[in-house]
Deep mutational scan, measured.
Amino acid sequence: SDEELKKRIEELVRRGNKDEARKLAENANSDEARKWWEKLEQL
């Protein structure tokens, strides 16, 4: 689900694993996940 995906992306970003988070968001084929990633990346 998008919610689970967003949690995983956020967790990866928090751990400093941005590349992994980006790949996850891009491969998810989910606009919501991509937007979430872009938002987190700004922080």
Score class of each variant (00 low, 15 high):
Ser1Thr: 12
Trp36Lys: 00
Ser1Glu: 10
Glu38Ile: 06
Lys35Ala: 13
Asn29Val: 07
Arg8Leu: 13
Arg8Asn: 03
Leu43Met: 13
Glu20Ser: 03
Asp19Gln: 09
Val13Pro: 00
Lys18Trp: 15
Glu41Ala: 14
Glu32Met: 11
Glu32Val: 10
Val13Leu: 15
Asp31His: 05
Arg34Asn: 04
Asn17Thr: 02
Ala25Pro: 00
Arg14Thr: 05
Arg8Glu: 04
Glu26Asp: 07
Asp31Leu: 08
Asp19His: 06
Ile9Cys: 07
Ser30Leu: 05
Glu32Arg: 05
Arg22Pro: 01
Asn29Phe: 09
Lys35Ser: 11
Ser1Asp: 12
Asn17Phe: 14
Arg34Glu: 02
Arg34Lys: 08
Arg14Asn: 06
Trp37Val: 13
Ser1Arg: 12
Asn17Lys: 13
Ser30Pro: 03
Lys7Gly: 05
Glu10Pro: 00
Asp31Ser: 08
Lys23Gly: 03
Glu4Leu: 12
Ala21Cys: 07
Ser1Phe: 15
Arg22Thr: 03
Asn17Glu: 14
Leu24His: 01
Ala21Phe: 02
Ser1Ile: 14
Leu24Pro: 00
Ala33Cys: 13
Lys35Cys: 11
Asp31Pro: 10
Lys39Met: 13
Ser30Gly: 06
Arg14Ala: 10
Lys35Leu: 10
Glu11Tyr: 05
Glu20Ile: 05
Asp31Ala: 12
Arg15Trp: 05
Lys35Phe: 06
Lys39Ser: 11
Glu41His: 11
Lys6Gln: 05
Arg8Ser: 03
Asp19Arg: 06
Ala28Asp: 03
Trp36Val: 03
Ala25Met: 14
Gly16Glu: 01
Leu12Met: 07
Leu43Val: 08
Trp37Pro: 01
Trp36Cys: 04
Lys39Ile: 13
Leu40Ile: 12
Ser1Tyr: 13
Gly16Gln: 02
Asn17Met: 15
Asp19Asn: 07
Lys7His: 07
Asp2His: 11
Glu32Trp: 14
Ala21Arg: 00
Ala21His: 00
Arg8Pro: 00
Asp2Leu: 15
Asp31Arg: 05
Lys39Tyr: 14
Leu5Val: 05
Ile9Pro: 00
Glu3Pro: 09
Leu12Tyr: 02
Glu26Val: 06
Gly16Arg: 02
Asp31Asn: 06
Glu20Gly: 06
Asp2Phe: 15
Ala33Ile: 15
Glu26Thr: 06
Lys39His: 13
Asp19Gly: 06
Ala33Gln: 03
Lys7Glu: 05
Lys39Cys: 12
Arg22Trp: 09
Arg14Ser: 06
Val13Arg: 04
Ala21Gln: 00
Glu26Trp: 07
Trp37Cys: 07
Trp36Leu: 09
Leu5Met: 06
Glu26Gly: 04
Trp36Asn: 01
Arg34Ala: 04
Ala25Glu: 01
Lys35Arg: 13
Gln42Pro: 05
Glu26Met: 13
Ala28Trp: 13
Asn27Trp: 10
Asn27Ala: 14
Ile9Glu: 00
Trp36Pro: 00
Leu43Gln: 10
Arg14Cys: 10
Glu38Met: 09
Asp2Pro: 09
Ala28Lys: 02
Arg22Cys: 07
Trp37Thr: 01
Glu11Pro: 00
Leu40Tyr: 10
Glu11Leu: 05
Arg15Cys: 14
Ala21Ser: 00
Leu12Gly: 00
Asn27Cys: 13
Glu4Met: 11
Lys39Gly: 06
Ile9Phe: 05
Asn27Ser: 14
Gly16Met: 02
Ile9Arg: 01
Ala25Ser: 04
Glu38Asp: 07
Lys35Met: 10
Glu32Ser: 09
Glu38His: 06
Glu11Asn: 08
Arg22Gln: 06
Arg15Pro: 00
Glu10Thr: 12
Arg15Asp: 06
Lys6Ile: 14
Lys6Trp: 15
Trp36Met: 04
Glu41Ser: 14
Ala25Tyr: 06
Asn29Leu: 14
Glu11Val: 03
Asn27Leu: 13
Ser1Cys: 14
Asp2Asn: 11
Asn29Cys: 12
Glu4Phe: 11
Ala25Cys: 14
Lys6Gly: 03
Trp36Glu: 01
Val13Tyr: 15
Ala21Pro: 00
Lys39Phe: 13
Ala25Leu: 14
Ala33Ser: 04
Glu4Trp: 14
Lys18Glu: 05
Gly16Ser: 02
Gln42Arg: 11
Ala33Val: 15
Ala25Gly: 03
Ala25Arg: 02
Ser1Val: 13
Glu3Thr: 10
Trp36His: 07
Lys39Gln: 13
Ala21Trp: 02
Lys39Trp: 14
Lys7Thr: 07
Glu41Val: 15
Val13Glu: 01
Trp36Asp: 00
Glu38Gly: 03
Ala21Leu: 08
Arg34Phe: 12
Arg15Phe: 06
Glu3Phe: 11
Asn27Glu: 13
Leu5Thr: 03
Arg15Ile: 11
Leu43Pro: 05
Glu20Leu: 10
Asn17Gly: 04
Glu41Gln: 15
Asp2Ser: 11
Arg15Thr: 12
Leu43Phe: 10
Leu24Asn: 01
Arg14Ile: 08
Ala25Gln: 03
Glu3Cys: 15
Ala28Leu: 15
Asp2Arg: 10
Glu3Gln: 11
Leu12Val: 01
Glu3Lys: 08
Ser30Asp: 06
Lys35Asp: 07
Ser30Phe: 09
Asn17Gln: 14
Glu4Tyr: 11
Lys18Ile: 15
Arg22Ser: 04
Arg15Lys: 12
Asn17Leu: 15
Leu12Asp: 00
Glu38Ala: 09
Arg34Cys: 08
Ala28Thr: 07
Leu40Ala: 07
Arg14Val: 05
Glu26Asn: 05
Arg34Met: 14
Arg14Lys: 10
Ala25Phe: 07
Arg34His: 04
Leu24Cys: 08
Ala28Pro: 02
Lys18Ala: 10
Glu26Cys: 14
Asp31Phe: 08
Glu41Pro: 03
Ser1Asn: 12
Leu43Asn: 07
Glu10Tyr: 09
Glu26Tyr: 11
Ala33Met: 15
Glu26Pro: 01
Ser1Leu: 15
Arg8His: 06
Val13Ile: 14
Arg14His: 10
Gln42Ile: 09
Leu40Trp: 08
Asn17Pro: 00
Lys7Phe: 09
Trp36Ile: 07
Asn17Tyr: 13
Ser1His: 12
Arg15Tyr: 04
Leu24Arg: 00
Lys18Gln: 08
Asn29Met: 12
Lys23His: 08
Arg14Pro: 00
